[in-house]
Computed example of a mutant assay.
Amino acid sequence: MAKPLIAGNWKMHGSLALIEEFGRAFATVELPAEVEVALIVPFPYLAQAAQKLASVGVCVGAQTLSDQPSGALTGEVSGDMLRELGARMVLVGHSERRSLFHEDDQAVLGRIRAALAVGLTPILCLGETLEQRDDDRTEAVVLGQLEAVFDALDVDERTRLVVAYEPVWAIGTGRTATPEQAQAVHSAIRQRLVGYSSALGENTQILYGGSMKAANAADLLAQPDIDGGLVGGASLQVDDFLAICQSAG
């Protein structure tokens, strides 16, 4: 069984004061020992977050990275830079990166390789739009995004990824996939990973990311193939995020 992971994606939100607030909260609350917790913060806050959260067992991650190690690439950030600031995880292929910044499967694969090359754990994000779901293309889209990466990696590299299913139609819309809808897609992802190897299917963490909040986390996390959450808006509220972490235990 994969160990539960709750990762909060702050997107382009947050502040130094909020990092301090989370640091104080995690220092005074005992979380379930079996649950991993991560905060995925904007680049400028990585060093501060890593400093404040390391002592309370919270991993820090970044929201994207360049596919290049260095160069004349104004505005880009390399994996080595992220590591130096204390990041241990990085989101790759988030739906907002795919839609707003036009990152296709090849761009996602390049960033996955860059993350693995410096020892970062990539969280590979997969998901379908409402139009694709309505056209009954959910599995084709999601598994296609998965295979575009996993087919290109070797056996060892595949074991170093976390996967996050994030239905695009349920991100920031207030809509959430029902536990049964989410479980169906997670099961399909799990079975595709088993196709690579039974161990990969059993051990890969598959997170649900689509308006998970304190009120619905327990029902979602109770599903057999949901190993945790990629939490958006609720990760900016200390009490809500702590409640979700508690639900994963």
Results as ranks from 00 to 15, higher is better:
residue 25 A to T: 04
residue 219 D to V: 09
residue 51 Q to A: 15
residue 33 A to V: 14
residue 75 G to D: 10
residue 165 Y to D: 02
residue 240 D to T: 09
residue 182 A to L: 05
residue 241 F to E: 04
residue 79 G to R: 07
residue 246 Q to N: 10
residue 101 F to Y: 15
residue 212 M to I: 15
residue 213 K to A: 01
residue 239 D to A: 14
residue 35 V to R: 08
residue 221 L to Q: 02
residue 186 H to K: 02
residue 70 S to Q: 14
residue 101 F to D: 08
residue 95 S to R: 05
residue 136 D to W: 13
residue 80 D to V: 02
residue 86 G to S: 13
residue 225 D to S: 08
residue 72 A to H: 13
residue 90 V to H: 07
residue 134 D to S: 13
residue 37 V to S: 00
residue 198 S to I: 13
residue 1 M to N: 13
residue 129 T to L: 10
residue 200 L to G: 03
residue 47 A to I: 01
residue 71 G to I: 10
residue 43 F to H: 14
residue 40 I to V: 15
residue 205 Q to G: 01
residue 212 M to K: 04
residue 186 H to I: 05
residue 158 R to S: 02
residue 95 S to E: 06
residue 110 G to D: 10
residue 33 A to H: 13
residue 98 R to E: 02
residue 90 V to T: 12
residue 63 Q to F: 03
residue 230 L to Y: 06
residue 170 A to T: 09
residue 225 D to P: 05
residue 86 G to C: 11
residue 88 R to H: 05
residue 148 A to I: 06
residue 163 V to Y: 03
residue 210 G to F: 03
residue 150 F to C: 10
residue 83 R to H: 09
residue 115 A to L: 13
residue 135 D to G: 03
residue 30 E to Q: 15
residue 112 I to D: 01
residue 75 G to H: 12
residue 83 R to L: 15
residue 80 D to P: 00
residue 39 L to M: 12
residue 209 G to T: 00
residue 95 S to T: 06
residue 136 D to L: 15
residue 151 D to P: 04
residue 30 E to I: 06
residue 48 Q to W: 14
residue 232 G to I: 10
residue 174 G to N: 07
residue 117 A to W: 11
residue 30 E to A: 12
residue 62 A to D: 07
residue 39 L to D: 00
residue 20 E to P: 06
residue 136 D to E: 15
residue 49 A to L: 14
residue 19 I to M: 08
residue 35 V to I: 08
residue 47 A to S: 14
residue 55 S to W: 03
residue 230 L to C: 10
residue 23 G to Q: 12
residue 152 A to L: 10
residue 76 E to N: 13
residue 174 G to R: 11
residue 79 G to C: 07
residue 142 V to G: 08
residue 64 T to S: 12
residue 8 G to C: 09
residue 160 R to H: 13
residue 189 I to F: 05
residue 88 R to D: 01
residue 202 E to T: 13
residue 50 A to V: 09
residue 194 V to C: 12
residue 173 T to E: 09
residue 138 T to F: 00
residue 124 L to E: 01
residue 189 I to M: 02
residue 170 A to M: 11
residue 9 N to A: 07
residue 102 H to E: 12
residue 225 D to Y: 11
residue 54 A to W: 05
residue 199 A to W: 00
residue 115 A to S: 14
residue 196 Y to C: 08
residue 175 R to W: 00
residue 117 A to F: 07
residue 221 L to D: 02
residue 152 A to D: 07
residue 208 Y to R: 06
residue 60 V to K: 04
residue 202 E to A: 15
residue 224 P to F: 10
residue 60 V to W: 06
residue 160 R to D: 04
residue 233 G to T: 09
residue 117 A to E: 14
residue 183 Q to H: 08
residue 60 V to M: 05
residue 48 Q to Y: 14
residue 249 G to F: 11
residue 77 V to A: 07
